[in-house]
Computed example of a mutant assay.
Amino acid sequence: IALIVMTLLIGPEVKGSRRWITLIGVNIQASESAKPAFVVLAAWLFAESTKRPEMPATSMALVLLLTLVSLLVMEPDFGQTMLILMVWGALFFIAGMRMIWVMGLAGAAGVGLFTAYLLVPHVAGRIKRFMNPASGDTFQVDTAMEAFSNGGWFGLGPGEGIAKRSLPDSHTDFVFAVAAEEFGIILCLILLALFAFVVIRALSRAYRSEDMFARFAASGLAILFGVQAAINMSVNLQLIPAKGMTLPFISYGGSSMVSLAYGVGMMLALTRQRPRTEQESMNAGMAQDYA
């Protein structure tokens, strides 16, 4: 949060947004680092609310959400804002909160999106172009769809793609379309299956955990990973309005790659099965004999 505040104060403005800050010669996108850290901290607060009902942990988690979302909107970075809101809402639901609260939060998010549509020109422009392509420039998504069409099932071959020569952000936001053109729909389906496997496996391991913090944190990190991948692929396929979001471990990027790496690293640490110590095995054996 401190880095995001510094970005807002001294970060350079690029295309109307302040999202990057240079520290010791390294460009950092602080919002990327904030995502997994936010998920783990929110998970801890929800876990504490189940252990100690007298602790206002849920209210603290809501304050944390509003703080981070407010800073992201000020950048502005509505893609990361929507991602954070969806992951927090999923954690809120997993923690056993009442459906009426979940629906209320979803309604509040919808109102916020509508307000952004009314007040922020580039958000309105993206939504209008998505609803009516003739209303503005749709070069990026049109070129991405052309790449899918060119690639067919098996692609044109490594390095033989045509769309990447003219497609902006072909190495980051639209790398999925480039992969489709060069390696075909088969590779896209394999990537989709891999992302789905990671998310489903992590959620199943988290569900079996008896530690509420490990369960919530692993679930939140898995959902963060899966939703980010889904947003990127959906933008490439013109299923949702365009927004800048990298494809996990496929897109080029420094801050995003580091953030994803330690997020998945924490997810592995939280879901791994630790071997029993000798004393734990003896205690379990004694308990079984007594039973």
Rank of each mutant, 00 (worst) to 15 (best):
S281Y: 13
L23Q: 00
R205F: 10
A261H: 06
V199M: 07
V63F: 03
V178P: 04
L66Q: 01
M97Q: 14
E160D: 06
G151I: 14
V40M: 15
A109S: 12
M145A: 13
A284D: 09
Q29T: 07
I10G: 02
P56A: 03
D173P: 13
S255Y: 02
V235K: 03
G263M: 08
A30Q: 07
S166C: 01
A229M: 01
P168H: 00
R215T: 10
Q29D: 05
L203S: 11
L224H: 12
E75Q: 15
R19F: 05
A287W: 12
T138E: 11
L221E: 01
L66R: 00
M233R: 01
I240H: 02
I1A: 09
L113T: 04
E48M: 14
L189M: 12
E280D: 11
I185L: 13
E75K: 03
D169E: 14
A180S: 12
L270A: 02
A106P: 01
E146D: 13
C188R: 00
G110C: 07
L203P: 11
V73Q: 04
S234I: 00
V178S: 04
V5A: 12
S70A: 15
G16K: 04
E280L: 08
I200D: 07
L119G: 04
E182G: 00
V69R: 02
G265K: 11
M60K: 13
A242M: 11
G157W: 02
G184M: 02
G136R: 05
L71C: 04
I223C: 08
A106K: 04
M55R: 15
L192G: 03
N283H: 14
A291G: 12
S17A: 15
Y290E: 05
G79P: 11
F225T: 00
F130K: 04
D137I: 11
R19T: 11
T58N: 10
L64S: 12
A106C: 09
K128Q: 12
G25W: 08
R276S: 11
R126P: 07
S49E: 14
S59M: 11
S255P: 03
N232F: 09
R52N: 14
L64D: 04
A284V: 03
D173H: 13
Y207L: 13
M257Q: 03
L9H: 02
S259Q: 09
L105C: 08
Y252W: 06
V40E: 02
S281L: 15
T50V: 15
I223P: 04
E32S: 11
I162C: 01
F197Q: 08
Q29K: 07
T246V: 10
M99E: 09
L221A: 03
L194R: 02
L239R: 00
N27D: 14
S17G: 08
G226K: 00
A108L: 15
T277C: 14
L3W: 09
V178T: 07
V120L: 10
Y252F: 10
E210D: 13
R52W: 03
A108P: 04
I127C: 05
V69C: 11
F216L: 15
A95N: 06
V69G: 02
A229P: 02
F92N: 12
M82H: 04
L23I: 14
I100M: 04
A196R: 00
R52L: 05
P275K: 10
S281Q: 15
A217K: 10
L167I: 01
I231A: 06
M103Q: 06
L71M: 09
W44S: 07
I223G: 05
T277S: 15
A90F: 15
F92G: 10
P121E: 09
L167K: 00
D211S: 14
F93R: 08
T271F: 11
Q140E: 06
